[in-house]
Design a protein around this nucleic acid. Sequence first.
DNA 1: AATTATTATATGTATATACACTGTGCATAT
DNA 2: ATATGCACAGTGTATATACATATAATAATT
Lengths: 144, 144
Amino acid sequence: MGELYKSKCYCTNLRRSANAVSALYDSELEGSGLTVGQYYLLINLRRLGSANITHWADTVGLERSTMVRNIRVVESHGFVEQTEGRGKTYTLSDKGNSALDKAIPKWEKAQSRIVELLGREDAEAVIRIGWTLQNLKAEDETVL
Amino acid sequence: MGELYKSKCYCTNLRRSANAVSALYDSELEGSGLTVGQYYLLINLRRLGSANITHWADTVGLERSTMVRNIRVVESHGFVEQTEGRGKTYTLSDKGNSALDKAIPKWEKAQSRIVELLGREDAEAVIRIGWTLQNLKAEDETVL
DNA sequence: AATTATTATATGTATATACACTGTGCATAT
DNA sequence: ATATGCACAGTGTATATACATATAATAATT
């Protein structure tokens, strides 16, 4: 009993995929202390050097309000520090830096795992689809 | 400033895609009173006729505990009814049935929209990828 | 300098998701 | 019949996400 129904809904399939793959990455990243979500926040903060919430949120493609709460998490774990002063700027802490260093090879392994599972073609499709869809919201705003 | 970074992370791209597409479907479904998540719950309940939480959760591919809370939502909106008695069984209410009837053509429009946006090839990839990944967890359990 | 405008940050509310654990009730085994 | 076990339901805690709205802080304008 309880066989999972194979949906033809693009949305349902994307949600399921995102959840399954998140779990896969989280499990692969175990030991680094980071989840994929946190990994992506930190790797981008490293790229930026330092950033305020708005800038950081734009870079990773999240709502500012979502960002406020996500930052709360990485900050509570001590991965980022708040350069108090004008404007509230965040930078990676030492703990954040070393977590990230530990996480990178694990992330690469997870990436390979996906290529193994989906094949090179479909893995590439994932990136292409992501890039296509990430402009959806921007376009909506432009139309207004 | 604040250009969105194009990620090469399969996980990040899938998450972004899932969120963007969920928003697209939710907006397309407006007027039916349903979100995509709710739509998928209800369309499956209709297929099943009636179901207890465990069975329903297995069908839609969600954790039982997730299901408990998601059911709480559709129940609070009056879309499903609880056939109290032995085992706690759920069925669609009249309101749920008519919401679903209104939603189906809207869902189909959203489906077409995705094919338009991604092209037939990549749209098919979404389904294929979803079906491949939905067995991940099952396999993990089998390995134990 | 005081008021207004702009930008940045935060909160309220709603939804979605899962793991670990708790509770509960029925079935089976001794 | 009491105990043990299994199936099912629910809670605690943690994460993730966004829209609408509020608040704070800074800049501009008169």
